[in-house]
Deep mutational scan, measured.
Amino acid sequence: MSRESDVEAQQSHGSSACSQPHGSVTQSQGSSSQSQGISSSSTSTMPNSSQSSHSSSGTLSSLETVSTQELYSIPEDQEPEDQEPEEPTPAPWARLWALQDGFANLECVNDNYWFGRDKSCEYCFDEPLLKRTDKYRTYSKKHFRIFREVGPKNSYIAYIEDHSGNGTFVNTELVGKGKRRPLNNNSEIALSLSRNKVFVFFDLTVDDQSVYPKALRDEYIMSKTLGSGACGEVKLAFERKTCKKVAIKIISKRKFAIGSAREADPALNVETEIEILKKLNHPCIIKIKNFFDAEDYYIVLELMEGGELFDKVVGNKRLKEATCKLYFYQMLLAVQYLHENGIIHRDLKPENVLLSSQEEDCLIKITDFGHSKILGETSLMRTLCGTPTYLAPEVLVSVGTAGYNRAVDCWSLGVILFICLSGYPPFSEHRTQVSLKDQITSGKYNFIPEVWAEVSEKALDLVKKLLVVDPKARFTTEEALRHPWLQDEDMKRKFQDLLSEENESTALPQVL
């Protein structure tokens, strides 16, 4: 008996699950189920560990084997000379395990699969056993689809999209007709009724959600790893209520002995410091949205989908001078704002400069500016000194954290500008005749005249004003913003236009 009217009423009120309206889709043409990776026989039982391990490696599972009696060998002398080797079968990115008779397991190899009674669906509900069930008529011709799209860092995100009359449910929550939600590992998919569980979705590319604290899981769906560094790992996640993407940084307390840091400095109150950081608001710094204190720290951040500045300059790639100017102007505005709010970044580098898009002209935002507030000064500097390429001379020669101030950030900005303009770092371990530390503390950077011949004198002058060993003589952010190279009204107008595109209400910060 159909429950279409009941569920449609529920759909009209929406769902609290991570779902959002989605535009129309072009329906895929039908194809045989076997060619799409559906096993030839149905099963109602969950797999054992041996079955799972075989399939996850990209080899055929026991459900897909063919009797050897149906095959015969071709003698080598009868092999056609022009026969080309077969292409290897792509490894599946996800697996659906059937929970009921009449449904088959599915190895997801393609990027898009339609499910329903219509014969054009890649996964067609046409098993005779299924057709005899009382629920068969409640399934729509095109009930739902599972697909994946390219996300940040060229990774993939799996989604389920509801197109049914009676509802598609993920972990008992209604997706909603015309809406989608991301699928995470071990999600249970039910059709027409929330208790009519048909599939379990296994994402073969992500970790299980159960490793994360419950308070975090209640608000966010964790997904793929976006990156990792000395101070922690960053994962893509989704807000459950809105389906908006965020980035979540995970900082290990054990790695940084944060408990010991608190004992050594009783004034170090991470929760208080995070609340201060959350109040920071500038178009060129990453917004801190939320914070969870569990076995590790979880910092929920605004997501930038254009990648890191590092990706644009790695491998001796240089940027156009006009692009360097647009990016560097924004970096200076961001660091100036942090300094005005009493925050020294201490870890400025291309990896911590994020881009809003893949376009050459785009907004940038500074991230990882609050680590000293979370990890403690000593722990952070011990970590950073392991990779000193961007560290100021006074940091390398000081004991502990004494003896330096916000000028350290201006040195790091000078190193970043040098790399963007030239395509190579000013200080490098590859210069074996002088140690990296000695290069930095003496201010002897690697200047290649033929490379810098293409760079304007004004740009080079600003680099020199920032890479000054004496912090008292080094340019401040205010002085850098007043430098002739940055007195470019076309560049500032472009920045204002980019801000307006992102948010019509965002105004250009005042600069002296």
Rank of each mutant, 00 (worst) to 15 (best):
K245H: 03
A230T: 14
Q27K: 11
T138M: 05
R254I: 05
A267L: 07
M46C: 15
K177T: 07
L60H: 07
N112G: 11
D162L: 01
V234K: 00
Q10A: 06
A237L: 04
N166M: 00
R262E: 02
V211F: 08
N269P: 12
R262V: 04
G176V: 08
E219G: 10
P21F: 07
R181A: 09
K249S: 00
S140E: 01
S40R: 07
Q36C: 12
V25S: 10
R195W: 13
A237I: 01
F125H: 01
Q29N: 11
D118L: 15
Y113V: 11
P85C: 13
G14A: 15
E107F: 15
P47F: 06
L106F: 10
S49I: 11
V25N: 12
V206I: 15
Y136P: 03
V270Y: 05
G30Q: 10
G102Q: 12
A237R: 00
F125Y: 02
L174S: 06
K119T: 10
S49F: 11
C243K: 02
H163T: 02
N110W: 07
C108R: 04
K255Y: 01
S39D: 06
T26N: 04
N166I: 06
V175E: 00
D126G: 12
T133F: 13
C243I: 15
L226R: 14
Q78Y: 13
S49K: 09
P213V: 13
C243T: 02
K249I: 01
P85G: 15
G102E: 10
A158G: 11
N48F: 10
T65L: 03
S40N: 11
Q11P: 07
S33W: 09
L130Q: 03
Q20M: 15
E239K: 09
A98W: 03
R217E: 06
G102C: 13
A261D: 04
D111G: 11
Y72D: 14
V234A: 07
P90V: 08
S31K: 12
Q10L: 08
E173T: 02
Q10W: 14
R181F: 15
R3I: 04
S40E: 06
C231F: 12
Y159F: 08
I74R: 14
E219L: 04
A94G: 10
N110V: 10
V7F: 07
K235D: 06
K142G: 10
D162A: 07
K249M: 01
T59K: 04
G232V: 01
E76Y: 12
Y159E: 14
T133I: 05
F125D: 03
S210D: 04
G14R: 14
E233G: 09
L99G: 04
E87L: 07
S53T: 05
E149Q: 12
S28K: 06
Q29F: 09
I38C: 12
F169T: 02
E173L: 14
F199L: 03
V234F: 02
A158T: 06
D118E: 08
L204R: 02
F147C: 02
L183Q: 00
L183G: 02
G37Q: 11
D6S: 11
E8A: 12
S44H: 13
Q11E: 12
G232S: 05
P152L: 14
Y159G: 14
R181D: 05
G259V: 11
S42F: 07
L236C: 00
Y156E: 03
P128Q: 07
S19T: 11
V175M: 13
P75V: 13
K241W: 06
L236W: 06
Y139H: 02
S52T: 11
N110G: 06
Q29H: 07
Q20L: 11
K131H: 07
Q27R: 11
D218T: 08
D203N: 08
H163E: 03
G23E: 12
P92S: 15
Q34Y: 11
H163G: 14
S44V: 09
V246P: 01
T242F: 03
L226V: 02
S49C: 11
S50H: 02
S192L: 03
A94I: 07
C243L: 13
V206Y: 00
A261W: 04
L106Y: 11
G102F: 15
K235R: 10
E8G: 11
S39C: 15
D208K: 00
K245D: 06
E271L: 03
H54V: 11
N110S: 10
V211R: 05
E87N: 09
H54P: 10
S120A: 06
K255N: 05
F256V: 07
L99Q: 08
N171F: 05
Q78K: 11
Q78P: 06
V270C: 09
S16A: 05
K119F: 12
S260L: 15
R145Q: 13
E263A: 04
S67D: 10
Y220D: 04
C231M: 14
V25W: 14
S39M: 02
D6W: 12
T242Q: 05
D82C: 10
Q10P: 11
F238Q: 09
S24M: 14
V150E: 15
Y72S: 08
P266G: 10
V170W: 09
S223C: 01
L183T: 01
S32Y: 07
V211M: 04
L60Q: 06
S42A: 12
Q78D: 13
E161N: 07
L174G: 13
K253V: 02
M46F: 13
Q20H: 03
Q34R: 08
G227I: 03
R254F: 04
D77G: 06
D101W: 13
A9W: 13
